[in-house]
């Protein structure tokens, strides 16, 4: 079985429809557990007080704002190279989800920034690149609506998506590229967290087997977010990812059906 079979609209709908209730259910469960845990059962931060609770919405939304554009880039490239309509429709379906994620990241960032930085907004590299990403999402959605011919619209929006990827990439790495501005370095690195967990597990196993004489100390990397905050944050991030998957499946199915309605009506008019 090939991955490209899912480019067939019927196969795509038949495969994703039974997954949808599960995906929405898992997303809701993760978000409820993560947000309730984060809101009610984590302590306040020494410096930031209770505003640290905003992290459970701000970080997953910001992560998804960039990753949704990444997904749109992949599907746009598939459209340009292989001309699969489902991939172009998936990119179109993902854009409104991406813009909502970007808006949540911008709004919660401004609300968080006001008490911490003393300002709602600063022309900081990360904030500015996110604002530009938001404008790219707007432009992308407007371009789809502005062009009647669906293939031409898919071509032009794909090109726009490739151009916008520069800003999505800059949004992700702005803090590293320009070591200035108010925004802190990235809060969460899944690679570093995974490395820390594996290293600690290895040390635990080694020490358990060989005993106290040959204890190894693990040089764990610096953690930007304490585990007290990180575990509920990770659950929220999983919830946002699964919610995106569920929404993009549902919205792509809707776009496929809209295309089918147009095709049937056009056939009826002709014959």
């Amino acid at each position: 079985m090939s991955f490209w079979e899912y480019a067939n609209p019927k196969k795509f709908i038949a495969t994703t429809t039974p997954i949808l209730p599960w995906a929405f259910g898992i997303a809701a469960a993760c978000l409820i557990v993560g947000l309730v845990w984060g809101f009610f059962f984590t302590p306040d931060d020494i410096r930031q007080g209770s505003t640290v609770k905003i992290i459970y919405l701000h970080v997953p939304a910001a992560m998804m704002a960039i990753n949704v554009w990444g997904m749109m880039l992949v599907t746009s490239l598939i459209w340009l190279i292989r001309r699969h309509h489902v991939s172009a429709l998936a990119a179109r379906a993902a854009a409104p989800i991406g813009i909502v994620m970007t808006l949540i990241a911008l709004v919660t960032g401004a609300i968080w920034g006001q008490p911490m930085w003393g300002t709602w907004w600063a022309w900081d590299p990360r904030l500015t690149s996110f604002l530009i990403l938001f404008l790219f999402y707007l432009g992308y959605m407007a371009l789809w609506e502005a062009i009647d011919d669906p293939d031409t619209a898919a071509d032009l929006t794909s090109i726009l998506c490739i151009v916008g990827s520069v800003f999505a990439f800059l949004s992700r790495f702005a803090v590293q590229f320009w070591n200035q501005g108010l925004h802190q370095a990235e809060s969460v690195s899944l690679w570093e967290w995974t490395f820390n967990v594996i290293a600690r597990f290895f040390a635990f196993v080694w020490n358990s087997i060989f005993g106290a004489e040959q204890v190894i100390e693990v040089a764990v990397r610096e953690e930007n977010v304490s585990n007290v905050f990180f575990v509920p944050l990770l659950i929220c991030m999983i919830g946002f990812v699964v919610l995106f998957v569920a929404l993009v499946f549902q919205r792509t199915t809707t776009e496929i059906r809209v295309r089918r309605i147009r095709a049937l009506e056009s056939r009826a008019r002709r014959g």
Binding site: G49, S50, H58, A61, I97, I104, I111, Q114, P115, L247
Partner: peptide, 28 residues
């Protein structure tokens, strides 16, 4: 809720974000 002096900031972030997500799911 024990949010201290930043209650308005935290609550408004949650209300706005969850409302936007709920709206997105409802519209879809």
């Amino acid at each position: 809720l024990g949010l201290g002096k930043y209650g308005l900031e935290v609550l408004s972030s949650y209300v706005i974000s969850l409302a936007m997500l709920a709206l997105l799911v409802w519209i879809s």
